[in-house]
Simulated assay, not measured.
Amino acid sequence: MSDIVLSIQDGSASVGFLGGHPLVPKGFSPPRSGINGIEQRFMFQLFFPEWHDLSGNCLLFFFDPNNIDEHHVIPDMSTPDNYPKIVDRGVLEKQQRYHSIFIFSAQDLIVDPQIVSPLVRKNMSLVEKSEPGDRFGRLNRSPVWLLGDETPPPSTRLPTFVFQISENYLFERHPTSSPQRQIDYFSSTGVSDRNTDNYKIFVGNEIYIFAYADLIQFGAFVCVQNSE
């Protein structure tokens, strides 16, 4: 079992990084929101170690920090009561309205300086044990569930666990980036800026990411849990 712990370091990242500019294949274009067409923002990139089922590949995560749709604060179908019977391309595309996950070969990638993250650049390192407050997530062979096993349904293949992001993890916002928008029922407009120097993804839920061998080119499936 390994925890992904974030630290600000000199030199190269050991397993990935938040913020900065992603490494992408030539010709890659940033995704846009499936609802309003706004360009999603690059959040982090993870490179899988040799022992992982996805070794030789990397994962890019994009997110719309200004999503203020109260019906989509978490992805569609991301809890067991809303799971589809099977996962297919249509399910993955529908779930990725305000976020996008890309999994592709870690070979022949180039830095794209035109894609700028709203986050402070931080490198990821792997340790065997960490304090909860220091933990970005877990990169294990199987998930550590908060509320019991809620493995998502299969496609034509069984899902492969990729990794998980810790509950209530705060993504440090770059000083030049705009605050995250939030639903605010006490505001005359119904929305307001979060008065913080960070972003939350999916309102701070523990995030579990699963991939499917037959659907890898269409991203990954997300499910969430919350201990509160």
Rank of each mutant, 00 (worst) to 15 (best):
I103C: 07
Q96V: 00
K85S: 12
S125C: 08
E128W: 12
L109R: 03
Q107M: 14
I110C: 12
I115M: 08
G90T: 06
I101P: 00
E70N: 14
R121D: 06
E93D: 14
P113N: 13
I110L: 15
N66M: 10
V111Y: 07
M124W: 10
D88G: 08
P75S: 15
V116D: 06
F62A: 00
Q96W: 05
E70A: 15
L60S: 03
S100E: 14
S130L: 07
Q114D: 13
Q96K: 02
V87T: 02
K85M: 11
S125D: 09
V116N: 05
K122G: 02
S105K: 03
I74Y: 04
S55Q: 06
G90R: 04
N57C: 03
L54D: 02
P49S: 02
L60Y: 05
S55N: 07
Y98R: 00
P118C: 04
P49V: 01
H52D: 02
E128Q: 10
V73F: 09
I110D: 09
F61C: 04
F102V: 02
S117P: 00
S78A: 09
G90A: 09
C58T: 05
I86M: 10
F102N: 01
N67D: 14
P84N: 08
I103R: 02
D64A: 14
Y98F: 13
V127W: 13
H71N: 15
S117C: 06
P75T: 10
G56I: 05
I103H: 05
C58D: 06
L119E: 04
S55F: 08
H71Q: 14
V120L: 14
L126V: 04
N66E: 08
P80K: 00
A106G: 09
N123F: 06
N57L: 03
P113C: 13
L59P: 00
Q95E: 08
Y98H: 10
V111M: 14
D64K: 03
K129F: 15
K85W: 11
K129C: 15
L119Q: 12
L54E: 02
I110V: 08
L92F: 12
Y83H: 10
V111Q: 10
I110M: 13
N57A: 05
P75F: 12
L60C: 08
P113M: 15
L119D: 08
T79A: 09
F47L: 02
P113W: 12
F62P: 00
